[in-house]
Amino acid sequence: MIIDHPLLGPRDSAEFTYMGDARLIDRPDPDGADAAAAFFDYAYLRDNPAGWHRELWFHEAGDRSWLVVTRNTLTHEISKVELAREVARAKGRSK
């Protein structure tokens, strides 16, 4: 697969390490009322969609950026690649 790195352009997926569901960015509030349940979901429960999936890839043999790659798990089509740091900021993780 070719991942179109937002900064570096198209790179072979062999340069990356795969982690999984990009929902791992949404780490729950540890002080929330239901923190234990929320962390249980966060650590263990994943969707396994046949189709579009947002997932985390680490450019280990490159610039060490974590990326959020939107990939169709049936066709391997990649529709969007974002810097995970930007995604995290957009999700309000900046505080």
């Binding site: 390490t17 982690m19 791992l24 960015i25 780490r27 985390l56 680490f58 280990e60 060490r64 950026s65 974590w66 810097l83 995970a84 740091r85 930007e86 995604v87 995290a88 900021r89 993780r93 900046s94 505080k95």
Partner: peptide
Amino acid sequence: ALPVYRHMEFVRQCLVPD
């Protein structure tokens, strides 16, 4: 060494980006 560095970068970029 490698997985821990990767994990630290994950925390830095994805969980505490600023």
